[in-house]
Computed example of a mutant assay.
Amino acid sequence: MAFLGILCLILVTTLLAGHFTRKIGVPAVIGQLLVGIVLGPALLGWIQPSSFVHDFAEIGVILLMFMAGLESDIGLLRRYLRPGIWVALVGVVLPLSLVTLVSWWFDFSLLLAIFMGVIFTATSVSISVEVLRELKLLDSKEGTTILAAAVVDDVLSVVILSVFVSLSGENTGANSPSLLVGFIEQILYFVGIYFVVKWIAPFLMRLSERFLLGAAVTIMSLVICLSMAYLADLIGLSAVVGSFFAGIAVGQTPYKAEIDHNVEPIGYAVFIPVFFVSIGLEMDFKGMSDALWFIIVLTIVAILTKLVGGGLGARFAGFDLNSSYTVGAGMVSRGEMALIIAQIGYQAKLIVPEYYSATIIVIVLTTLAAPFLLKHAAARQLAQISE
């Protein structure tokens, strides 16, 4: 029953950290990430990454993105899909090319250098979503563009990873038929989303009213969320893509307000704090001195390529400078997406052990930087509006 003590410690410390960071004007998520660093292997070592933490964190990020989908305006998403595609495209090409060059400059083999570029094409907007929610900007044009870009970015990252792993099949046992099957499955999944939004989710939500149980509507919404997340994960997409679209589907029904009211306490009371702590737990300073320059240079390049890439994409789509900065800042965090890709590469022996820890540190540092950048960008934007 040790996991109960761990959960209690996480909840108490994230509650306090969130309170004090908000008090000094810093997003609460920063305090929760720092809890993971302080209590994890990097410093005190009281909490270790474990299957319990991992599973709770997975549920946390799924619920977080479900609520983001629930609060999204589908009309705005359609309207800002084109800017989202621009943001995702430029925000993938820039880190893929420059991170590859930087890694090659540090004497990585060409294969490993390209894979490092693949890792940093990923974007995890789960942390950006939390900051945008806190700043009440989630349904703004910038917030909507970030969400639209995140979906496109996720698909592009999965495609690039699949192609790369297939081309290096001698190391991984991958083959082109499985790649083709994966593409077909993913296309069918996105086609299926249309039917879920249009007919399946509304039918299931109406059906849930017939059950003689007070929480039936909320339970049915979670069934839709978890099943779509599971199917997305099954075909090689991120589970958060499935949960985000599940939120959009359920958000089009008359039960939106009730579900949002009931699901938010479930997520924020238990699972979401564990997710943010789990990111901090990945930080480990062992061997950091041996790769210090690599970590510093790669962190700067990783942050700038997404910030500039996402910002340029927004500029190409017609956004002004401050809006472009906000969108770029919202795409900086690599979070769980990059961690997953790095782990896949490590297991497939595409990334050597001595650079694996350094890569994880860079991913965590970009994730820590994202809320500060996003808050600064939002403050500039609000100042512009008030003038």
Rank of each mutant, 00 (worst) to 15 (best):
L11D: 06
V12G: 10
V12L: 14
F20A: 11
G31H: 07
G31D: 05
L33N: 01
G36T: 05
L39Y: 02
P41D: 11
L43F: 15
L44C: 14
D55L: 14
F66W: 08
M67G: 11
A68L: 05
A68D: 05
S72P: 03
D73R: 10
L76K: 15
L77P: 08
P83Q: 11
I85H: 09
V87F: 06
A88E: 08
A88D: 03
L89C: 09
V90S: 07
V93E: 02
S97Q: 03
L98S: 02
V99A: 14
S109A: 10
F115I: 07
A122K: 00
A122N: 01
T123K: 02
I127R: 09
I127P: 05
K136I: 06
K141A: 09
E142S: 06
I146P: 01
A149I: 05
A150Q: 06
V151Q: 08
D153Q: 09
D154Y: 07
I160M: 01
S162W: 05
V165R: 04
S166R: 11
S166I: 14
S168W: 10
G182I: 03
F183H: 04
V191Q: 05
G192Q: 08
F203S: 14
L207K: 08
E209K: 14
E209T: 10
A215W: 09
V217I: 14
M220F: 01
L226R: 07
Y230W: 11
Y230S: 13
L234S: 14
L234V: 08
V240Q: 13
A246K: 06
A249G: 07
V250I: 10
V250W: 04
T253I: 05
K256W: 07
A257M: 14
A257E: 14
N262H: 11
A269E: 09
V270S: 12
V274N: 14
F276E: 09
V277D: 03
V277Y: 05
E282A: 09
M283Q: 01
F285P: 09
K286I: 11
S289T: 14
I303W: 00
T305A: 07
L307E: 00
L307D: 00
V308D: 04
G311I: 00
A314Y: 11
S324M: 11
S324F: 06
Y325A: 15
M331A: 03
M337P: 00
M337D: 00
A338Y: 01
L339A: 00
L339G: 00
G345A: 09
Y346T: 07
Q347Y: 12
V352Q: 09
A358P: 05
I361W: 00
L365E: 04
L365M: 15
K375D: 08
A378Y: 07
A379G: 04
A383W: 10
E387A: 12
E387K: 15
